[in-house]
Amino acid sequence: MTGPAVLLETVDLGMRFGGVEAVSDVNFRLTEGELRCLIGPNGAGKSTFFKLLTGQLLPTRGKVLYRGRDISGIETHEVARLGIGIKTQVPSVFDGLSVRENLWIAASRGRPTRRANEMVDEILSRIALAGSAQRTVGQLAHGQRQWLELGIVLAGEPELILLDEPAAGMTHEEVVRTAELIREINRTRSLIVVEHDMQFIRMIASKVTVLDRGRVLVEDSMENILRHPTVRDVYLGKRVAA
């Protein structure tokens, strides 16, 4: 094979809920070091696809391969142990614990305590929460919680990071900072970002996969996607009334 190795691949992936085919025949490929954005209108199957990738759902057809190994439907904690970090749409953090404790829990798996503590300090400054280390996470602002969750994911040192709407509910400055953070992360890790916000995707400028009605509509660079007529129709506001 030429070029960088395939990290994550789906083969004819399909998910059916009763009579609804939420995801069908998706053949998706992510190479090592890539930053891929996944967009699509509401109901396009983004969330289902995301859950299939993370083992939260067992596909009704096809499979998900990570480094060539079938990981469809394996336990959540096993997904993590393979080196896949996940950030969910609604920040999934330990609300009752302090910021530091949140990161420590993430950093301490498979690491001696001293190394975990160093890791926590490093990430605290990276996500600009060093001043709030002792605060209870439940008291943080929404944007800070989003960053904290990013930090939690980073603390596990995954090879592949899956982000579900990382910029949701953020102010413009926060979005800019998040985009910077994602580009910085991409220097060493592969990422898949599910996003609504086209502005944000433009900031992180990468290859984009457009999902529509459970299928891959098109896969191209951001500039080409914006010019693509069908994408404009289904997604970018000029929706044709069905």
Binding site: H77, V93, F94, S108, R109, I152, G156
Partner: peptide, 22 residues
Amino acid sequence: RFGRVIVAIRENEQRAGFLGYD
């Protein structure tokens, strides 16, 4: 570590799973 992890699981089982804790 065990104690801190069980408290974390009490707080958010899904997140603990995402971090690799069974």
